[in-house]
């Protein structure tokens, strides 16, 4: 890792040794706290060779878990994009009664423990829950099934898209949209040609973060899924099960795959940031 320090401004008065020390501390902490655990996961996964790791993740339960995780993300992320966009638009562009309450509610999943969220969903949709009888009467299975896992994931990931969009939309105001309307654009045409392009970067970040969390969520899903092996075990749940059964190569292979998906997301974000640096800067300026 090369360490080069070029002062971008001469106003800063800190001495060179101080700056070098600061950078070293930051890099060391990052390496110890973030990089080392990740490296260990990959090292452990490939301890018995890549073939063994590959065998583990292509085993039946593992394949089911990967499929389930991808399915849950594929359902939860688009729903969250729609809900988050609607919420952000309402908050950023209109004044209405209960706006402060809505903003606080959006942050609720950040402050409530995922386990509590999972329990709350069980109390609501479970056999003895508030909606339990109605669901049973209509032969709908939520708890210990895919709908429950999706609901838990939706709850946990709800803030990601809205939180990214609200500041951008608030800052941009309504003027450009009103301009589109005075020029004869229909509401839908305005959203497609003005609103969405103006928030596309924030929206993309929101989607990427939401996706990473949707695939990685453990606590809420652990409660509501019932951990039925091969049926309701998502990747994080199955990793924990493998680990508890001392199947460490299996656990770490799955963990490496999950971490790999997250790293892919991060790489995609960085690539887009680098590739469209000018466009991003332009959409923030003006």
């Amino acid at each position: 890792m090369s360490l080069s320090i070029t002062p971008t401004t001469h106003v800063t008065t800190e001495s060179r040794p101080f700056r070098v020390t600061l950078c070293l501390v930051a890099l060391t902490l990052t390496a110890i706290l973030l990089l080392a655990p990740l490296a260990v996961v990959f090292a452990e996964a490939f301890r018995e060779g890549a073939a063994a790791a590959l065998d583990m993740v292509s085993e039946r339960d593992a394949r089911a878990a990967i499929g389930l995780t991808l399915t849950v993300a594929a359902i939860a992320v688009p729903l969250n994009v729609i809900a988050g966009f609607a919420a952000a638009w309402a908050i950023a562009k209109f004044d209405f009664r209960g706006k402060a309450v809505l903003i606080s509610l959006i942050d609720l999943p950040f402050s409530v423990s995922p386990v509590v969220a999972g329990l709350a969903l069980v109390l609501l949709y479970g056999a003895h829950g508030v909606l339990g009888d109605w669901l049973a009467a209509h032969d709908l299975k939520v708890v210990f099934a895919l709908p429950g896992i999706v609901l838990a994931t939706l709850f946990i990931t709800f803030p990601f898209v809205a939180r990214e969009l609200i500041p951008v939309m608030t800052e941009q105001g309504r003027a450009e949209e009103e301009a589109a309307l005075t020029l004869g654009a229909s509401g839908w045409h305005m959203i497609r040609t003005v609103t969405l392009p103006n928030v596309r970067w924030a929206l993309l970040y929101g989607v990427l973060l939401c996706n990473a969390r949707a695939m990685g969520e453990f606590g809420a899903v652990a409660v509501i899924s019932g951990k039925i092996r091969g049926q309701t075990t998502t990747m994080p749940i199955l990793i924990e099960m493998f680990y508890n059964e001392y199947l460490s190569v299996a656990a770490f292979s799955m963990a490496a795959l999950l971490a790999g998906l997250a790293l892919l997301t991060l790489a995609l974000k960085s690539f887009l940031e680098w590739h469209h640096a000018d466009a991003i800067a332009a959409s923030r300026r003006h």
């Binding site: 301009a179 309307l181 005075t182 040609t193 392009p197 332009a282």
Partner: peptide, 19 residues
């Protein structure tokens, strides 16, 4: 409605489409 009003409107901050 505003779309059918056919009023050319110049906004205070111009509201040009930045993208």
């Amino acid at each position: 409605p505003v779309q059918k009003r056919r009023a050319g409107f110049v906004f205070q901050s111009y509201a040009l489409f930045r993208h």
